[in-house]
């Protein structure tokens, strides 16, 4: 989604002279199209993420539309308080991009994992959090949110090759997208894990379980009505996210179920254990945390068996 992001930003910047791009010294061989096209609106803030957010706050208050860019954990967690006391507290249109969400920086190890960015930033009322699932949705989401008066955080995957034809690039604030219908179970997921959920749904069909797959691509506003409608029609739901269990997708879905009094049993799949010193590919990390297609399938089948007993 990196190239989708930069291409979309170039398109927006060509029409809107207020747009500036700040990077925390990351995005080599990705950011250059913007840098070449808009050299006066490109700033490398250096390896200094707190200051980058502070700069963006000052620029936005003066009328600019700053985008900041770094790896998810450096973009969201290092400057968390600057985000809270800056763009959020002042309701300024700063757009923050966190790259490589979840376990995408696999072999780089736990210091580089973006396994809390969405969960943590979702706590900030007033900050729209966008989690696109593929490049086409990245483009749609960036265009749809570019004019918002308040701040936005985009949690993006790196991979520009993983395309989800089922999603067809759809995005709407406060809504979910259903990319597969199924009456037995709802799999609610987000980001790069959508493809694992779709593959799992195919496998589950072979076991006689018809799973619906729902994509959540934004919080604040949370897609409460859509989730309530979906979960009112399913007795079982499973959330799948490469995020901390607390605060993320499971927390949102669980709150909808409880606050609407729905008779839907939720099984949350998320990152539940602290780093143990190991690292591995994204696929390996998904497997380790039970988030890959096999993990989803076995969780669903185990839950179904438990429900029958």
């Amino acid at each position: 989604m990196r190239r989708a992001f930069v291409q979309s930003l170039c398109r927006l910047a060509a029409q809107d002279p207020r747009i500036v791009l700040l990077t925390g010294d990351l995005g080599y061989l990705v950011m250059e199209p913007f840098q070449r096209q808009f050299p006066d609106r490109f700033f490398n803030a250096g390896v200094a993420e707190q200051n980058m957010i502070g700069l963006a706050t000052g620029l936005a208050e003066a009328g600019f539309l700053p985008y900041t860019y770094s790896i998810a954990t450096f973009a969201a967690l290092r400057p968390f308080e600057f985000i809270r006391n800056g763009p959020v507290m002042h309701n300024l249109p700063v757009r923050m991009v966190g790259m490589g969400a979840g376990f995408e920086y696999g072999h780089a190890g736990p210091t580089h994992y973006g396994t809390e960015d969405v969960a943590v930033l979702r706590t900030l009322a007033g900050l729209t959090v966008v989690i696109p699932a593929d490049p086409a949705q990245t483009t749609t989401a960036m265009l749809a949110t570019s004019k918002l008066p308040g701040p936005v955080y985009y949690s993006l995957g790196k991979d520009d090759g993983a395309v989800l034809p089922e999603l067809a690039g759809q995005f709407e604030l406060g809504r979910i997208q259903i990319v597969r219908e199924g009456r037995d179970l709802a799999i609610v997921t987000m980001g790069t894990l959508v493809r694992e959920a779709l593959a799992a749904a195919d496998e589950l069909a072979a076991h006689g379980v018809e799973a619906c797959v729902a994509v959540v691509s934004n919080f604040n506003p949370d897609p409460v009505d859509d989730l309530a409608d979906l979960l009112a029609n399913h007795s079982q739901a499973i959330t799948v996210e490469a995020q901390a269990l607390s605060g993320g997708l499971a927390a949102c879905v669980g709150t909808v179920i409880a606050s609407h009094g729905l008779a839907c049993r939720l099984k949350p799949l998320a990152v539940r254990t602290p780093p143990d010193g190991t690292s591995g590919s994204q696929q390996d990390r998904w497997r380790k945390h039970g988030l890959d297609r096999a993990g989803i399938v076995s969780s669903v089948l185990a839950t179904a068996r438990g429900a029958c007993q």
């Binding site: 200051n51 502070g54 700069l55 963006a56 000052g58 620029l59 208050e61 003066a62 600057f82 800056g86």
Partner: peptide, 14 residues
């Protein structure tokens, strides 16, 4: 430690 970063951004904006 927050205000100076904002001031620098505001100076850049000016």
């Amino acid at each position: 430690g927050h205000g100076l970063s904002i001031a620098v951004g505001a100076a850049l904006a000016a």
